[in-house]
Structure formats: structure tokens, C-alpha cells
Nucleic acid binder design. Structure first.
Lengths: 165, 165
DNA sequence: CCGAACGTTCAATTTATATTGAACGGATTA
DNA sequence: TAATCCGTTCAATATAAATTGAACGTTCGG
């Protein structure tokens, strides 16, 4: 490690590996890492030039990062381009990214569980395998309980504390 | 929805979509869903037959699920096959899966940050751009603080409470 | 208006990842 | 010891996802 840019390069590469391992491509991490270590706001073209990525990818990645609060658009007087600087509330960013990931699925699940429960309860009388129905009901309830606890956790004090800032 | 197996099928399909969206393939979710809704322990061949997946995939998936505590091996008297039943401590399972995901990267990051910090501190005197060095140091520290807070959160009481059971 | 500068979109492509299935080795039984 | 039954491994393949880049619409400046 001989220059400040070496520090940047390694940090950015590591950020890319992390976001890749987490299932958002490399570019997301590269972009955030680059802006995070930039003292001045960066334009889309800056990102493309600095990281060697396409404008299309930069545009889409930037939007996702914005939704997480990881990038903020800043307006520079009399400039036509958009500029971005890094959001620094890492906890909140992590929370939004995680919610983004989990949320893709979660909504439909509640409905599925409720519907299954309803049907199973209706079957208890007229089935030839009441034990099986009872077993399934038990499992559905078990799963619903977990979902309740998980929701509670997300609203608990310590979690909120970390994720505010 | 006309039979108990319809309930199973939809549950299993949903589980597969979730694990897929989370970046572990579909089979992981299918397998756990199937065993979770099975009253009796399941063998590898049971899984292959019920889900239409290969033995290789079943073997690998089962191992990962075991590491998360999502499946437990049970021995059945005088049987040569391995049998599996579902672990029901969903919180703990989720935690381990998340740790598995995050942990792939985390270790090396601490080292990278520490090394960067060391180098930057050594440069403060003999550089031509002291402001840039100072800026990078600030960001590195900011990131380290977040990591500290995140670790603290994972050991906090409410999180432990949810994840025990 | 016209032309250039930008950001966005999306089909095509590349890249990464999950999944398969044939080959292998250990263990059990005859 | 040979034959079979199982689970595992890993190179090949199939599948999913990220990334590109050309085409497009909009906005701004001249």
C-alpha cells in the first residue's frame, strides 16, 4: 500500500465483494465505496470513468442506492449533471437493504399462511386423515408465531437505536 | 385448494421462492419446506422423489441446512439410510443463515480497515495532500464505528431473545 | 427550432451461481 | 471378497442474475 488511492482501491474492491456475496452485484458496492471515499460529489460519468462500468449500470445502481439512502443527489449550481454524495447512516442503509431483500417475498407469505389455516380448519370434520390436518395446522401456527416475533423484533428498541443512526 | 397436499405444495413452492430471492437456490427452500411439513423423518431418496431433484443437490443442500440447525439427522433403528427431520427453532435458524451470509466477507474487512488506518496514520506527516489523508481516516473511523455498533446489536438482549427460540 | 448533453430503459450478452449426474469410496451384508 | 447400498464430490451443464450498450425521450443552450 503506497498511495491513498491504493487505500481507496482496496476498500472499493472489498465493498464490491460484499455486495456481490450479498446478492446485489459488484457495481453496487463499487459505486458506494467510491462515493463514500470521495470528498466531492460524483457524477454518473465520474463513476463510469473511475470504476470502468457502463452508464446504464451506473444509472440503475445509483437509483437502488438512493432508495436505501446510501446515496443522496446534490444539486450543484448551474450544472446539468446529477451529482451524488454518500449517505453516512450506515445502520439505516443496512436496514433498508435488508428490508428490500426480505420484503420481496414477505407479503404473499402472510396471505398464504392465512389461507392455508382457513382451509385446514374447514377440513377438520370431513377428512379421512384428521391427524394429518392437525399436524399441518400445528406447523402453520408455528410459522405464524415466528413471523409475529420477527416483526416485533424489528420494532424493538435496540434495533431501532442502531438503525436510526 | 382441495387436498392437504395442495397446502404442502404451495408452502414448499413459497419456501423455494424465498430462499431463491435470498440467494440460496430454490432447492434449499423446497427441502426445508417439505421436511417441515412431514410428520415422519425423510431420507435423501424421499427428498429426491418428492421434489424431483438430484441426489447430489439433495446431499449438499441437506448439509447446509444441517449447519443452520434447520435439519437434524435422526437415526432409525436398523436403517442404513440417513433420515432428517426439521429443526423448529426458526429464529436461531434465521440467525445462522444470516451469519453465514454476512460472515463470508466480514473477517477480512476488519483487517483491511485496521491496515488502512495504520498506513494512513503513518502518512500524516510526509504527504503532500494531508487533507485527503485526514478525510480517508475520518471515513475509515466512521466505518469502524458502525461495525462496533453492529456487533453490539447482535449481542443485545432482544435479539438474543428472539434468536434463542 | 435545432443540436448537444444527460439520464433512462430494455433486449442482448456476459458473468455468476445453482443444479445435475456420473464416478468414487466407505460401509454393510452375503 | 464380491456385490450392493448410500452418501459425497466435482466437472459439466443449466439456470438465474448482473451488466452492457444502443436507442430513446427530455431538457437546456444557442
Amino acid at each position: 500500500m503506497r498511495t491513498a488511492d491504493d487505500v481507496r482501491a482496496r476498500f472499493i474492491a472489498a465493498a464490491g465483494e460484499i455486495t456481490q456475496a450479498l446478492g446485489f452485484g459488484r457495481n453496487i458496492g463499487h459505486i458506494y465505496g467510491h462515493v463514500y471515499l470521495s470528498a466531492r460529489p460524483q457524477s454518473l460519468d465520474d463513476l463510469c470513468a473511475a470504476l470502468g462500468i457502463s452508464k446504464g449500470s451506473a444509472s440503475m445502481s445509483v437509483r437502488q442506492l438512493e432508495q436505501w439512502g446510501a446515496l443522496k443527489r446534490v444539486w450543484i449550481r448551474g450544472a446539468r449533471r446529477d451529482y451524488f454524495e454518500a449517505g453516512l447512516e450506515l445502520g439505516r442503509i443496512a436496514r433498508k437493504a435488508a428490508a428490500d431483500m426480505a420484503g420481496r417475498t414477505d407479503e404473499s407469505v402472510g396471505e398464504l399462511l392465512a389461507e392455508s389455516e382457513r382451509w385446514l380448519k374447514g377440513q377438520r370434520r370431513n377428512t379421512r386423515s384428521p391427524e394429518d390436518i392437525a399436524f399441518l395446522l400445528e406447523r402453520i401456527h408455528h410459522m405464524q408465531q415466528f413471523r409475529t416475533r420477527a416483526r416485533w423484533l424489528l420494532n424493538s428498541a435496540p434495533v431501532r437505536l442502531l438503525l436510526k443512526k
